[in-house]
């Protein structure tokens, strides 16, 4: 008879599975070390803080997309949701003179509603999420332009700038916000029943349903998370420039997808970690930052990011995650012989 301690070791003697689980973290560290050695401008504390600050809001948006990909779906509409939050927030505050807090709550409710509609279309309408969110993306985009006629709305109060550019001590406020959001979401995903249900639904929808999990609620909630978190990210990005802009999110969808996948989230759902997303976001930002410092044309960043995404997806879809290492196989064999 074996003991509980014996059977509840997560990694046992197998270092390989530990390394595999955290491979992106090691790669990120390696990347930072290499750039720090080769680029003198990279290793300054200002620059490192800058990387963190620039990553923060994209990372928050990616954490929302993470939930949708975790349940095996996709949310294309975030780019428009970001624009919607930005332009309506500025409109509410500047044109209608609403207090900032009320405007924040209002736009976050709007982004939650966008997520809710996506979720309902996918779950009750049984639409493929790619199509459903592509449609809502365009509808929201249309509403944004109708509201703003395409023009930015500037003149937000200076105090609001703190959200995007403020500091607490030496740490930029967005970085603190990113970690707070990440920690809350980590607790939800790892330590609550609802959080575990996201993984279950993404891992096997039918089996989850038959195990009594409310798959409808969980799926819709994932889309709502995606909407709200892209709203939070959009507020931060708006605060940086103090003006609402409909096209704020238009180039972000690609980065967000790349970050989620870089973070080790399985595109078929059921596997991924919230801190993986943070690591993925930092990884991407370190590369663009280094390219800027090296004076490489910014358009090359698109090419490089594209190639990175291809490589990661190729790895994701072609290595059927090796479920058992050789030493584990030997152990299984010895167990079965008994």
């Amino acid at each position: 008879m074996s003991t509980f301690e014996e059977k509840s070791k997560r990694y046992g003697k197998s270092w390989r599975s530990f390394i595999r689980d955290w491979i992106m973290l090691f790669l990120l560290i390696a990347l930072v070390v290499i750039f720090s050695i080769t680029l003198s401008t990279f290793r300054t504390s200002d620059n490192l803080m800058n990387i963190l600050r620039q990553t923060a809001f994209t990372a928050i948006i990616a954490m929302g997309e993470f939930f949708v990909i975790l349940i095996g779906q996709m949310d294309m509409s975030i780019s428009s949701t970001i624009g919607m939050v930005s332009i309506f927030f500025a409109g509410f505050v500047v044109k209608m003179g609403m207090p900032i807090w009320i405007a924040i709550i209002l736009v976050l409710l709007m982004s939650a509603l966008a997520g809710l509609i996506n979720g309902i279309l996918v779950v009750y309408g049984k639409m493929p999420s790619f199509i459903a969110t592509l449609v809502t993306m365009n509808i929201i985009k249309g509403i944004n332009y109708l509201y703003s006629r395409g023009l930015p709305i500037s003149g937000l109060p200076d105090g609001f700038n703190f959200l995007g550019s403020g500091y607490i001590g030496i740490v930029p406020f967005p970085v603190i916000l990113m970690f707070i959001v990440a920690i809350i979401l980590f607790i939800i995903t790892a330590h609550t029943a609802v959080g575990r249900s996201f993984y279950a639904v993404g891992g096997n929808l039918e089996a989850s349903k038959l195990s009594g999990i409310n798959v409808v609620f969980v799926s819709i909630l994932a889309f709502v998370f995606s909407g709200v978190l892209s709203g939070v990210g959009a507020l931060g990005l708006t605060a940086k420039t103090l003006s609402g802009n409909v096209s704020l999110g238009e180039n972000l969808l690609f980065d967000v997808m790349t970050i989620v996948v870089l973070g080790g989230t399985s595109l078929t759902g059921g596997r991924g970690r919230i801190f993986g997303v943070v690591i993925g976001a930092l990884f991407l930002q370190v590369i663009s930052n280094a390219m800027v410092l090296m004076g490489i044309n910014t358009y090359w960043q698109w090419v490089v990011k594209g190639i990175i995404l291809i490589i990661v997806v190729l790895i994701d879809s072609n290595t059927k995650r090796e479920v058992v290492t050789t030493s584990q196989k030997a152990r299984i064999a010895s167990v079965e012989e008994k």
């Binding site: 029943a193 279950a200 096997n204 195990s211 995650r321």
Partner: peptide
């Protein structure tokens, strides 16, 4: 395989799935 278990999940997660609460 397709209705009873979540194959990528571990033994613990699969066992406690209906009784998580």
């Amino acid at each position: 395989r397709s209705l009873g278990l979540i194959l990528k999940f571990d033994i613990k997660e699969n066992t406690i799935l209906p009784s998580m609460n």
